[in-house]
Structures are given as structure tokens and as C-alpha cells.
Design a protein around this nucleic acid. Structure first.
Length: 267
DNA sequence: AAACAGGCCTAAA
DNA sequence: TTTAGGCCTGTT
């Protein structure tokens, strides 16, 4: 196990980043630190004296990429400060980073997210990992990797009954099989244009506009994607002009979406 | 108890 | 192209 200093806590606010609804496997401990698993590596992350530290067995570059540390968020957020209300959201949400999650994990997680609250999404995802993911020891504790789509593709809908995911189980199996058979190739879509990626995702059973945009933003890291859920819809209705077009926010509109989501959830 | 959750699908206009 | 109802499950 190796301890590394990631960056300043100003650059990466772990609470905002982990609690803004983009990920479901990071859990806050009693001491304020977060534990989670990414790309098969368990990790503990905490803030101390103005810096963010991380314990794990993974190579350093993995976390640099995962937390998107090479992009200047201060700079790409500047245009948001010129938009009424969004400026408030931006100031409040500064420190949020869009994680580079595993594409399949994002796809599966956001399929599960539909018509669900975050608490239940997390519990379903945890059961999925516990039942079908590979165990990995870290710091004397057993963690579970996110199961591969190859493994899930071998299962039937009934096998997922233990997840209590309801009608979403069928969508999970369909997605896993599509990836396994290369009918859908998320790595390809990572390099493809946003429009192309969305077109492909929308062909899938159980994936609509909202889930597709979440996968594109959180799994493929196309930051122009702007998922509209009930919270964002409410924000758009209440705080933005009637004909406001999020696409006008540009190549990093997805980051603005996160700031708005975080701010709305603050209440 | 009944309604509602970070949607999507299908059927019907 | 928009709208209504149903869908698993868990919580209030």
C-alpha cells in the first residue's frame, strides 16, 4: 500500500465530488475519509492540511486520470460565471471534478439509477459487486471489484433477482451482452463524437436520453453532455430563461450540469 | 395506505 | 411528436 498526495483540496473537493451523484461506490467513513473501488483498486481518500491524500495499490497515473487532475477546472468554469444563477452554482460547486469512471460501470450504474433514489442505487450496485465481482483484499478489508460485463453476459435475468433491481435487471443483462458481443463498443464511443455516441446508446433497450447522457458524461468523459433529470429540469424551469439552451454552455456544459445539480441538492 | 422515487417502453392520438 | 399508464422495489 502506498500513500500519495494527489493535489490541493481546493482543486479537488472530495465531499462535493463524491456526493454530486456521479458515482455510487465511494462511501464516507466516520473519520470523514472516503473508501471506494475504481478500476479494480480499492482506495481510501481523505483531506488533510489543505491537501488530498490517497492510499491504494494502484499506479499513481490511474488516480491522476480518474480525478481528471490535468484539466484546469478553474479556467473552463469561467464562462459559467457570466450566466445568471449558474454563477451561484459554480461558486458553490467549485472543487467538483468529473470522474473518469469505467465506461461499463457507468453504463450499468445509470441503468440502475432510473426511477430510483441514490440510496437504493448504491445498495443495488453494492449487491451486484458482492454477488458477481471479484474479491480483493486491501488494508485488511475485503472489497469487491465491479463485475466484468463478460461475467454478467453469462447470466440470465433470474440470476439478478438477488439484486432487487426490478425491471432494470433485463436492461443490465441486455447491456452486458451487447458489450460482450461487441454490438456496442464503449471504448470506440470514447473517441467518437458526442452525437455518434448518443445515437449508439439510444439503440439499447432501457437506455433513453437521460441515461445515455449520464453514460456519455461520466463513463466516456464527453464533457459537453448535459443530462437532464428532475432536479435539473426544475432548475431550468425556475432559474433560467424559458428558451435557455444548455448546449450554448459549450464543450464543458456537463460540468455546469454538475454544479447546478449539486447546488439544487443543497436546497 | 397510497404515492412517489436522478426513466423507459409501448400504445394511442 | 407529445402524452398516459405500467413497471420492480423501497420508503414515507
Amino acid at each position: 500500500m502506498k500513500k500519495i498526495e494527489l493535489c490541493s483540496s481546493e482543486k479537488l473537493d472530495i465531499v462535493k465530488t463524491f456526493e454530486c451523484g456521479q458515482c455510487f461506490r465511494w462511501n464516507q467513513q466516520d473519520d470523514g475519509s472516503y473508501q471506494g473501488v475504481a478500476f479494480g483498486y480499492p482506495a481510501q481518500v481523505w483531506e488533510e492540511n489543505g491537501s488530498v491524500f490517497l492510499n491504494s495499490d494502484a499506479p499513481d497515473e490511474l488516480w491522476e486520470n480518474y480525478f481528471d487532475l490535468n484539466l484546469d477546472y478553474q479556467k473552463i468554469s469561467e464562462p459559467f460565471l457570466n450566466v445568471e444563477y449558474l454563477d451561484e452554482c459554480t461558486r458553490a460547486g467549485m472543487g467538483i471534478r468529473i470522474l473518469n469512471q469505467e465506461p461499463w460501470e457507468a453504463l450499468c450504474s445509470f441503468i440502475i439509477s432510473q426511477c430510483n433514489n441514490i440510496k437504493r442505487i448504491k445498495s443495488i450496485v453494492e449487491r451486484l459487486c458482492l454477488e458477481f465481482g471479484e474479491a480483493v483484499e486491501f488494508d485488511g478489508v475485503t472489497y469487491y471489484k465491479f463485475p466484468s460485463y463478460e461475467n454478467i453476459a453469462l447470466l440470465d435475468v433470474e440470476d439478478l433477482a438477488c439484486l432487487r433491481a426490478g425491471y432494470r435487471a433485463e436492461y443490465i443483462i441486455d447491456a452486458a451482452r451487447a458489450l460482450d458481443s461487441k454490438t456496442l463498443d464503449l471504448e470506440c464511443l470514447k473517441c467518437a463524437q458526442y452525437i455518434e455516441a448518443k445515437k449508439e446508446l439510444l439503440k439499447m433497450n432501457g437506455i433513453g436520453e437521460k441515461v445515455a447522457n449520464c453514460v456519455i458524461l461520466f463513463g466516456l468523459h464527453h464533457m459537453e453532455a448535459f443530462p437532464i433529470d428532475v432536479w435539473i429540469r426544475r432548475a431550468l424551469n425556475e432559474h433560467f430563461p424559458k428558451n435557455f439552451n444548455p448546449a450554448g454552455l459549450g464543450a464543458y456544459a456537463g460540468l455546469a450540469q454538475q454544479y447546478i445539480f449539486y447546488y439544487m441538492r443543497l436546497g
